[in-house]
Design a protein around this nucleic acid. Structure first.
Lengths: 244, 244
DNA sequence: GTGTGCTGTAACAGACACGTCACCGGGCAG
DNA sequence: CTGCCCGGTGACGTGTCTGTTACAGCACAC
């Protein structure tokens, strides 16, 4: 059960750090865990890049040659609302308070274990993902979590619960469950499901959706003969029922 | 899930901590800085209170008598989406990663300076505040649903109700019912019905439409001799009547 | 009344759609 | 490299649909 998956696209992280060797190692580790990382060693350029590229998250070293990290944070905040994680060798409490009040979202003392950094980045992205991205197409956004009686489906955590018990869903199973649940009350045809999940055309023969459904149903406590959640609509598709 | 309290109201913080003296001090400090704080010393009760009170933020001590903080976090997560800050004397990296992956948003090692805690709480609340309150915004959506007195036909769910009782229609039956109902008040010839439903030419002999109608009628409470909904127009076709 | 169509519908059987098992290939971690 | 897990494929069994057919009743014309 890994944490935040790259649901649609990989998250874009910008690391601002003058120690290139360290930065490279960090990038490698983060990228091997599904993040897209770019580096910036120079403070002044960082401000520009954050404004222009609008990364999903910024990791900002405080001790930079030239411009100070705090000042970068302050200058960038009016133009960037994403999360900023400050990284610093100084562990002074006052610095930390200052950094956080300056608009940082997290403040980690060096040295930091890569996995700890990753965990904190993920935690932050998870929190942030519930905020619909304003720069998107601007159509109706979907909520991050759905609840139907005792069944809860959480998109940010990619996890579901059935009366408080976590349901062990595979990635593909979760995707299908989410698709159905977020379209509750509407019959989804196999064509729709196919294009939404795989981006390819439905050939009219493929049974993989059916198999997935049959794998999901027992996990969410559904009886295939008398399903309460995922109803089969014969010769059309599947329907996630809204009401009990 | 009543989202985040908005701006001016004081934020409601719940501290789960068994050391009452420490907790009191912390509360005092936080309250003197404009937060509303309540305390909970017992782990089991904490789960209940978090679910019921839905505080804006939870500070959770990991080392509790009885239930472990991690387990509290896991149990509470399905019902609480607000931020959780974990507090612990153990500063092991692995614990930290575990805590974050368990759904915590921050993880602070003890001892923690009150003002650091305050700064982190504020940073977290600042981040959370931008989360829009569950936008229930449904406009525009065409319901694709027809109603004639006590008969309701819903295209999205491909289901129909007769005075609140779900009607058991097969796929082909539903298609025909929808076609007729969505053309209520107009006689549909067999030719039209055939091309609309099967996309093929009517050969002038086929009786399948008639059979379908005869199967639908009892289900929607129609008497074939004196039909109120689907009338036969002799040598023409069928008519779904608008008014009762 | 009688005849000629048209319609309602019971019964049937082939086709069809779906659930599910077993299998396999690929990916990823150890 | 090796084993496990995930996810798609093919096959099979089952239950349900749905068109066909046949026959009975009805409507209308004469």
């Amino acid at each position: 059960m890994d944490g935040v998956e790259q649901t649609n696209e990989s998250w874009r992280i910008l690391i601002v750090e003058d120690d290139e060797r360290l930065a490279d190692l960090t990038r490698e580790y983060l990228e091997s865990n599904g993040l897209t990382v770019s580096l910036e060693t120079h403070g002044g350029a960082a401000v520009e890049r954050i404004r222009n590229e609008q990364p999903d998250l910024v990791v900002l070293d405080l001790m930079l040659p030239g411009e100070d990290g705090l000042s970068i944070c302050r200058r960038v905040r009016p133009h960037y609302t994403g999360p900023i994680i400050m990284l610093t060798a100084r562990t002074d409490d006052l610095d930390q308070v200052l950094g956080l009040e300056m608009g940082a979202d997290d403040y980690i003392g060096k040295p930091v274990q890569p996995r700890v950094l990753l965990a904190r980045i993920r935690a932050m992205l998870r929190r942030v993902e519930t905020v619909p991205v304003a720069s998107e197409g601007g159509n109706g956004e979907e909520p991050a979590r759905l609840q139907f009686n005792d069944l809860i489906v959480d998109r940010a955590m990619r996890e579901a619960w059935l009366s408080d018990d976590s349901i062990d869903l595979t990635s593909a199973e979760f995707d299908l469950l989410w698709l159905l649940a977020s379209n509750a009350g509407r019959v989804l045809s196999r064509e729709e499901i196919f294009t939404a999940l795989r981006g390819i055309e439905y050939d009219g023969q493929d049974r993989s959706i059916d198999v997935r459904v049959s794998r999901i149903r027992p996990k969410i406590g559904d009886d295939p003969i008398h399903p309460r959640r995922i109803k089969t609509v014969r010769s059309k598709g599947y329907l996630f029922v809204k009401e009990a």
